[in-house]
């Protein structure tokens, strides 16, 4: 991992407008969490529903997307990536450095707010927060890796990534049970569910479609696959500019 690359990436990521969004959106979540607490008398169950559907289902993937485009998208778009590729750095070093910055950003701007949101909306002894925090970290890692790689592979990455994250996981998952098993969110939740213990999980409407083993395996496979593909693509990057 290369510190200079990381510094440059971080600076590019936290440009004015993106930074604005990165800060405002979690704040919206926290506001919503507060509202939920008031409306449901701090019931962990309501908190869990909010976290599952909104935090993990909508906010987290989108924040990962925002961060991913900030970490790699802009550079490829305006071609300044050539400067970095021309340095005597291994492609995987470049990618890892960028991913490191991305993970850090997602942790701060998405995972922590998720946990805070759960705590605010209603929790007992911090257990739910922890469970969602763990799930969120895992999901965030995979989402970020996928979106960064997508950003390298195709210029329309963003939209396809969103189609997956939002349509596949949220909407279709609601209608077709089979799909739910093939979902980053479910894999991540499986780990959190195990942390809570199944009884507690049931009580708090923390459900996952897959077992933890399956979940962890799929998470690992997907992350490794995404990163590998990313490094491969970065090695053969051409800057042809048709949209």
């Amino acid at each position: 991992m290369n510190v200079t690359v990381m510094k440059l990436t971080a600076r590019g990521l936290l440009g004015r407008r993106r930074a604005l969004l990165l800060v405002i959106l979690p704040l919206l979540l926290l506001g919503l969490a507060g509202l939920t607490r008031w409306a449901s008398d701090a019931s962990p169950e309501a908190s869990s529903i909010l976290a599952n559907n909104f935090s993990m289902g909508t906010l987290l993937p989108l924040m990962c997307l925002l961060v991913a485009t900030g970490v790699i998208g802009a550079e490829i778009d305006d071609g300044s990536i050539v400067y970095m590729l021309a340095k005597p750095l291994k492609r995987r070093v470049i990618l890892f450095s960028k991913l490191a910055v991305g993970f850090a950003a997602v942790f701060v701007f998405a995972v922590l707010p998720t946990m805070a949101g759960v705590a605010i909306a209603g929790d007992e002894g911090g257990e739910l927060s922890l469970a969602y925090g763990l799930s969120a970290i895992l999901a965030a890692i995979v989402y970020t890796a996928i979106f960064v790689t997508l950003g390298i592979v195709t210029r329309n990455a963003v939209v396809f990534g969103l189609l997956y994250a939002l349509l596949w996981e949220t909407v279709l998952g609601g209608y077709v049970p089979g799909i739910r098993a093939v979902s980053v969110r479910q894999w991540a939740l499986s780990v959190g569910e195990r942390l809570l213990g199944s009884r507690q999980a049931d009580e708090w409407a923390f459900a996952s479609e897959v077992g933890m083993t399956t979940g962890l395996i799929m998470l690992t496979l997907t992350t490794v696959g995404a990163v590998y593909l990313g490094v491969r693509k970065l090695s053969t990057l051409t800057l042809n500019s048709v949209e």
Partner: peptide, 18 residues
């Protein structure tokens, strides 16, 4: 470009959700 797409969908989806 990348930010534009992400920003619009984030605003629309998040605001809708909230």
């Amino acid at each position: 470009r990348g930010l534009g797409v992400a920003a619009i969908i984030t605003v629309l989806a998040v605001v809708a959700g909230v």
